[in-house]
Amino acid sequence: MTDHSFMPQVEVLSVTDTGRRRRWTDAEKLRIVEESYSAPRMAAATARRHAISRSLLTRWRREARQGRLSAPESEMHFAPVAITANADQRAETERGDACSGRFEIVLQNGRRLLADASLEASALARLVQILERA
Rank of each mutant, 00 (worst) to 15 (best):
I32G: 10
D17F: 11
A79G: 10
M42E: 09
D26V: 00
T16K: 14
G19F: 14
E75V: 12
R41G: 04
E35Q: 11
S55F: 05
E73Y: 02
Y37T: 03
E73P: 13
A27N: 09
S38P: 03
R21N: 03
R21G: 07
R61N: 02
H77A: 14
L56D: 03
R54E: 14
L13Y: 08
L57T: 02
E35N: 11
T46H: 01
R21W: 07
E34C: 05
R65W: 11
E35G: 03
E34G: 13
A44T: 08
T25C: 01
R61M: 12
I52C: 05
S55Y: 04
E75C: 01
A43W: 06
T16M: 14
S70G: 13
H50D: 09
S36I: 02
R48Y: 03
S38T: 05
E63A: 11
T58Y: 10
K29R: 07
Y37L: 10
H77D: 07
R62D: 10
S36E: 09
E35S: 03
T16N: 13
E63P: 00
T25A: 12
A45G: 04
M76E: 15
S38W: 00
R65H: 13
D17I: 05
R62H: 13
R23L: 15
L57Q: 12
R49S: 12
S55K: 06
R48N: 02
A64K: 11
L57V: 03
V15M: 12
V33K: 12
A27V: 05
G19Q: 10
Q66Y: 10
T46Y: 04
K29T: 00
T25P: 08
P72D: 15
Y37N: 07
R21I: 10
R54Q: 14
T18K: 09
L56P: 00
K29C: 07
V15P: 09
R54Y: 06
A51H: 13
I52N: 03
